[in-house]
Design a protein around this nucleic acid. Structure first.
Length: 271
DNA sequence: CTTACCGCCTGTCGGC
DNA sequence: TGCCGACAGGCGGTAA
């Protein structure tokens, strides 16, 4: 997926397109993604309704209407593209949203780890209600993280990626922020000092904001709603750079596996 | 309560 | 060429 910066970029692109627009029709090409699609509920609650706002919570996009919020998650390979026709030109087009303005949004997701759901408000769905602190809000402070991590024996990297604690930090930005903070990804989260949390919080915000500014990083599956790829991926320090020289000390970058996901770090710079 | 592991899917890439 | 395994941006369920 799309990590947080990509989702933020997409949300920002969608907002002016659909805000105050009536969602005239929804065409479903299948009945399930990661979960069954609540087709009847979506038709009843969102078809023919005006979209008042579009917001992001963690990696979820919320389309707000008077009748509730439609929730969209892009999973690992989800994309939203805009079109002037309902015709699904791309393979794995699962849902097409038609707006009164003659804008069509196509939800494409080859791996189908994405999901669509709805909530009565901006809360009221377990997917939303269990989410932790969004790292781009003022709630993210070093002290709050230190308190949250108290007694946590899991690695700092797993901690950063746990959406019930921090909402929206994926594999790339976990690796990148730890590198920039000089913290070893395997360090137990509960033993990270306040001083190191201060650095980590700052670096995390920095890499996320940089990527948002760059229009979202892009690996092969992400395009924003305009179909334009972002370009932050060219600035990764360690992610995907196994055996390549560390940008700080030239020592080869190490790849390990943590809870089933690749971690990239520098053995000399991160202690 | 926590943590680690598994599975969900399709596509791509590198090695043989 | 083609086949096969490893791996890919996530995350919830489950077992321990």
């Amino acid at each position: 997926m799309p990590e947080l910066p990509e989702v933020e970029t997409l949300k920002n692109a969608l907002l002016p397109l659909v805000r105050h627009q009536v969602l005239e029709d929804i065409h479903f090409h299948r009945s399930n993604l990661r979960y069954p699609i609540p087709i009847a509920d979506l038709n009843e609650r969102f078809k023919g309704r005006r979209i008042d706002n579009v917001l992001r919570k963690g990696k979820y996009i919320l389309f707000q209407a008077e009748t509730g919020a439609m929730i969209l998650h892009l999973g690992m390979s989800g994309r939203v593209t805009q079109s002037h026709s309902a015709e699904a030109k791309e393979k794995h087009t699962h849902i097409v949203f038609k707006f009164q303005s003659n804008l069509y949004l196509h939800f494409v997701d080859p791996r189908r780890f994405g999901c669509v759901a709805w909530a009565p408000e901006n809360k009221g769905h377990p997917l939303l209600d269990r989410l932790g602190v969004d790292p781009m809000t003022p709630e993210l402070t070093a002290q709050a993280m230190k308190t949250l991590a108290k007694g946590c024996t899991a690695s700092i990297k797993s901690f950063l990626m746990d959406s019930h604690r921090l909402a929206g930090v994926g594999n790339i930005y976990a690796c990148e922020s730890l590198f920039r903070s000089g913290i070893r990804p395997t360090s137990p989260a509960g033993r990270v000092s306040l001083k190191r949390w201060e650095r980590l919080v700052a670096e995390l915000r920095f890499v996320l904001q940089q990527s948002i500014d760059a229009g979202g990083s892009t690996l092969r599956d992400f395009f924003n709603a305009d179909g334009e790829p972002g370009y932050y991926s060219t600035q990764f320090c360690v992610y995907g750079k196994e055996k390549q020289a560390c940008p700080q000390c030239s020592f080869p970058i190490t790849r390990i596996t943590q809870t089933g996901r690749s971690t990239f770090y520098c053995k000399k710079c991160q202690k």
